[in-house]
Each structure stands twice: as C-alpha cells, then as structure tokens.
C-alpha cells in the first residue's frame, strides 16, 4: 500500500471534489451544470482505471493479442456518458426557460424574486 500505486484514484478524487464544490458553491445555474458534468466524469475514471492492465490492449479480440483490458466497465461508462449528456440537455432546457421567466440565471436572485409577495397574487387568477 503506497501512495503511488493509487495515483489514479487521487486524480479521480480531485475531479470529484472540484465538481461537487462547483455544484454546491456556485450560484450560476449553468456553472452548476458544468460542475455536475465534471463530477460525473470523475466517476467515469473511477470505473475505467481499475479495468486497465498495463501492457494489455483494447478489448477487441484478435489472434495476435492475449491480454485485454476489462470490457465491462467500459460498457457501463458508455451508458453513464449518455445518461450524463441527457441530464445536461434537460438541465440546460430548464435554464433557458428559467432565464425567460425570471430574466436571471443566478440562484440567489431567483430565490429573491420568488419571495416577492406580488408573486403569490398571480395564483389569484384562476
């Protein structure tokens, strides 16, 4: 157990923490989504790095190779990437709508606008 045998996890760890920090700390909605995407990317590395064997080749079977990297994590991450982009697309669509309704994409400002008592009266129109 030494520090360098796990350096792949340290990279992943750093990315995950940055992503999470951006999501929670930043008020800008688009930046939040970027942070979310970084957090997800770090997970891709968490899955992929253990699957690699040094000296192995991509898992496309051919007579000239004998050692292959693990294909299963790659399949899972393909799925995860697609899920990630789907989430991003939906999130951005929401941001665009929010921007149209509130004329702002800053979380603090939007929350302030919602506290506006005039807003409750809008419900009065059936």
């Amino acid at each position: 157990m030494n520090f360098f045998s796990h350096y792949d996890y340290w990279v992943m760890l750093f990315l995950a923490m940055s992503g999470l920090f951006i999501v929670i700390a930043r008020g800008n909605l688009i930046k939040k989504l970027v942070g979310l995407a970084i957090l997800q990317t770090s997970v891709y590395l968490l899955y992929l790095t253990p699957g690699k064997i040094v000296g192995a080749t991509a898992p496309i079977v051919d007579a000239s190779f004998t050692v292959y990297s693990n294909p299963l994590p790659q399949v899972l991450i393909l799925t995860a990437i697609v899920v990630g982009v789907a989430t991003l697309a939906l999130g951005l669509a929401l941001v665009v709508r929010i921007r149209e309704e509130y004329d702002s994409i800053e979380e603090d400002e939007i929350l302030r606008l919602d506290l506006d008592p005039a807003d409750d009266k809008r419900e009065a129109k059936p």
């Binding site: 999470l20 999501v23 997800q40 989430t87 929401l94 929010i98 309704e101 919602d114």
Partner: peptide, 25 residues
C-alpha cells in the same frame, strides 16, 4: 403552471443527479 415549478425542477435535477452520482460511486 407556476413559473416556480421550473426552479423546483432545476433544484430537484441538481440534487437528484448528485444523489444518482453518489449511488453510481
């Protein structure tokens, strides 16, 4: 119908995706 539903959905999306990512980890 209310415009606040958009913000609510966005908050849910952020929290929900963090939750899902944790589950994947």
């Amino acid at each position: 119908k209310d415009r606040r539903s958009l913000v609510a959905a966005f908050q849910y999306l952020i929290m929900g995706t963090i939750g899902a990512t944790f589950i994947v980890i």
